[in-house]
Write a protein that binds this DNA or RNA. Structure first.
Ligand code: FES
Ligand code: FES
Lengths: 132, 132
DNA sequence: CGTCAAGTAACAATTCCGGTTGCGAATATC
DNA sequence: GATATTCGCAACCGGAATTGTTACTTGACG
């Protein structure tokens, strides 16, 4: 349901980087490769940097590089770094007095949490070094 | 203004209806109960009608009613009737020549499909008669 | 025939997201 | 030190999607 190209961009870039981990790439290079804008690249990759997946350096010969060996970065790491559940969360409780609404919310939320856990488990089984 | 308030509205209404299945409710009643607009209600419930979950009748003493006993309507029925996956689908393939993108897409899509199946399975285990 | 309610189309308001521009901060090269 | 390069960040624009609203048509009931 989510219309989000951020995960695609992040995975694509990391998958590319995994093929030559020592090379430094600028946001302009990455943007051209991915068909988007350097600022968008920095927005997305910035979250991966804060999560410790990437390092960024400014100035001449600066750019982006993997912060860890590619076989130590799983798809779940990327998913969690972006902090945007692909699983829709239920709306918050509006009518706390009604048992129907309460039971529904609890039920659906519980299912969603299980599903999200399961998704992360599945994503954690693959590293970006395996997707080339 | 939450994205995806349709499922909430649908489940809330059906849960309410399950408590007194024979009573006929107008979209105006339902809208007031749910804090929204009658047209919105008809939009959402119309999908459930097309899926065979609800019956609607026009004119005097018309309105909405469950088409089946509440214990025969599962949360999965509602979810599928609305046809809006809570699970994000991967973007389309843009670079068919690149093995990295292709492998990524296949991997993530496969995980997502499994997760969606699992979600429907979980939702199918609960009927709207059980959430009161 | 008159009333009520669903069905539907059209439009406005809101939100979300990617794209874009601009500028400041940091760092390498000269 | 001056200059060029690159990230960081804030602000804004434009398109897409969703919800709310108005208005009208269709059909059923008394
Ligand atoms: S890694 Fe980008 S198109 Fe192949
Ligand atoms: S508030 Fe609607 S069924 Fe309780």
């Amino acid at each position: 349901m989510k219309r989000n190209s951020r995960l695609s961009l992040a995975l694509h870039t990391l998958g590319h980087m995994a093929g030559d981990p020592d090379r430094m790439r600028t946001s302009a290079d990455i943007a051209e490769h991915a068909g988007t804008n350097p600022v968008v690249v920095r927005r997305v990759l910035g979250r991966l940097r804060k999560a410790g997946l990437l390092d960024a350096e400014k100035g001449h010969s600066g750019g982006w590089r993997l912060a860890r060996p590619p076989q130590d970065i799983t798809l779940a790491d990327v998913y969690l770094a972006l902090d945007e559940s692909l699983i829709a969360t239920m709306a918050e409780e509006d009518a706390p007095n009604c048992s129907v609404e309460h039971a529904l919310h609890r039920k659906v939320s519980s299912v969603m949490e299980d599903i999200e856990r399961s998704l992360i488990e599945r994503l954690a089984a693959t590293t970006i070094a395996e997707v080339k």
